[in-house]
Design a protein around this nucleic acid. Structure first.
Lengths: 369, 369
DNA sequence: CTGAAAGCGCTTACAG
DNA sequence: CTGAAAGCGCTTACAG
């Protein structure tokens, strides 16, 4: 690195007031020059075990880790030298790492990225850090990435890429690593999801109320509970209203823009355009809207489109996208809490968060602009 | 967890053929029942140090870690019991963690998410894992998250959220953690960026060639080299062509859709609309397009808009967005390699990757549809 | 070619 | 209230 002289001379005092480089080398520092427990012990004139007890505030009501004055001295010194425990040593000793692995289909999918932000935020409040890995919904990658994460000795795992059959998860459960699911449910494993069935119903009721009877569904991947449940909820509501959606009008798709394009093209190739389309993902919905436009149809006037998730962009599109808002960030936060409770040995139950329909121009036309 | 009986009875053989749970407990397993080096040594009838040497293929040309047959036996046993080294033990012993910290403004920004995917992918090929943390471009968060990452004893850090002044980085450099920058440059620290000056120039040349003379720039945050350099390149090219862009027509903005909306509104409030706008980020460009539309202007006919990055959505928009494509994934990959070389003790030089202009309807009108 | 020992930096019973 | 010891699972000179 092209260090200038200023940096070469060292930064005497960093912003938090900790004096990390002044004076002589710290006694009993680690190879990188960082203070160890021994450093603090030596400076305080006590045994390392005392320092450890004090800094971990061991001791319940009435039980003190050390005398008040000793404890204070130790804490002051630890602060002054900028002591932070070596997580490798702690991890080795306690066999807990305060690490959690998070597996997602793709982090560039803003839905998953938002969920992950919630996870990261919430786990951090427990002093945990997270590894994320993309699996691209590919079983081989899921396996390999899970191995990698377990090899890192994470305390737990959050899967955001579960296949609804849960077979892979059965294997993981056999390995003894606690985990929870987020976004997608599978088997009987604890999960935090959006109430996708309800979401699908909200979409259907909205379209039915607007008078639509000629409907199509772009349903997502067949292995993801999100698409499955949203579609099921939609179709059930149609059924209840006596509106039949033919099987040829329910097509699977990838969850991205390109997937929506391909699926919408297939629907159009199949005959006359429906008057309304429910797409189980906003990005796929954007792709579908593109195809409709290219076919000379005006979204919101000729064809209504409902998406799912309410990504930030949905409201900023030229034709605002009516969509079912799912609490993405909140799902991440809750999943993190759920895992923490599992790690504490609690039995936990799945949580289903309530979605809300957000009507915009893509179903309301000018009224929704 | 609601384990069914099948899972309770254990999964005898997992998919990779490793027999992890059959027979009696492994000898000298760790508290979680995982095999240790000692497990393998005992099973192979050799000393742990021999196992360690074999599994780490110690030994250069001519130097063997063990006899061929012993080595093979050890490797077979390690494979059979599913041995994977405890990274805490290795980390404690070697004071290297094979961990890298990655700081980004926000992971929900697809630009950063794409860069991060490249980083993650490339570091994984070195056997490294990554921690990501959001800092929201907030100096306090940058400090706190960096502390957190260093406390985890990462071997190195990649900053995707550098302030161009580099003052915070000067402090970090004083702490002895090797790092590189990605996306944004700062000071003389090694970085992998897009050639943003060139990108700005490409945008200007495109608009000038189309005959535009009445220009505006939505310039991003003043502390980010991306916005600064893109704007500088744009203005320099205008200057060279004898076209003056008044200072009032160059406005700072956040990098997201909302930021683009706000900035575009300010430009419009300031007087007559320009005939062309260069926005240094695609999402901000989408926001700007929304404001133009709301003002009754047709993008691509009344006003030309050029964005930056070419996010996947840019081409799928109702009015395709002309934009300067930056190699986001590639930047992440290169930054990872650069850090790895730094960790190997190499002196490394910054890399600037070449952007390409992608013309679409937002500047070409119907011709670009 | 292989073994034995030391030690990385912690935590946690166990004494006193 | 505090100290001393053991040991977590590795790696790495050092012997032989």
């Amino acid at each position: 690195m092209e260090d200038g002289p200023t940096r070469e001379e060292g930064v005497a005092v960093v912003a938090d007031g900790t004096d990390r480089t002044s004076g002589a080398e710290l006694p009993f520092a680690d190879p990188a020059g960082r203070p160890t427990l021994r450093t603090v012990a030596e400076l305080a004139g006590v045994h390392v075990s005392t320092v450890s007890r004090v800094l971990n505030h061991v001791g319940g009501p009435g039980v003190r880790p050390a005398s008040r004055t000793t404890a204070e001295r130790i804490r002051r010194i630890a602060e002054r030298v900028g002591y932070s425990p070596n997580p490798h040593a702690t991890g080795l000793r306690t066999s807990r790492s305060r690490l959690v692995g998070v597996l997602v289909p793709r982090l560039v999918d803003i839905v998953l990225a938002t969920i992950y932000e919630g996870i990261e935020e919430a786990t951090a409040t427990y002093g945990f850090s997270t590894f994320v890995a993309n699996t691209g919904d590919d079983p081989t990658a899921q396996r390999r990435r899970t191995e990698m994460v377990l090899a890192r000795r994470v305390d737990g795992v959050i899967f955001g890429d579960a296949y609804v059959d849960g077979r892979f998860l059965d294997e993981v459960a056999g390995r003894g690593a606690p985990f929870v699911l987020v976004s997608r449910r599978a088997g009987d494993y604890p999960s935090v999801t959006c109430d996708d069935v309800l979401g699908g119903r909200l979409a259907a009721e909205h379209l039915l109320a607007l008078g639509h009877r000629d409907l199509a569904v772009i349903a997502g991947e067949p292995y993801a509970s999100t698409g499955i449940d949203r579609t099921a909820g939609f179709l059930a509501a149609c059924d209840a209203a006596g509106v039949h959606v033919p099987g040829s009008r329910v097509v699977h798709s990838r969850f991205d823009t390109e997937g929506g394009r391909a699926a919408m093209s297939r629907v159009l190739a199949d005959g006359a355009a429906p008057t309304a389309v429910f797409v189980v993902n906003d990005f796929a919905a954007i792709g579908a809207m593109g195809v409709l436009r290219d076919a000379g149809l005006v979204v919101g006037r000729d064809v209504a489109v409902v998406g799912f998730n309410d990504v930030p962009l949905a409201g900023s599109l030229p034709v605002g996208l009516t969509t079912v808002r799912s609490p993405m960030h909140e799902m991440g936060v809750r999943a993190a809490h759920l895992l923490m409770r599992r790690l504490g040995g609690e039995e936990v139950a799945s949580e289903r968060l309530v979605p809300v329909l957000v009507p915009r121009a893509s179903t309301l036309g000018d009224r929704g602009a």
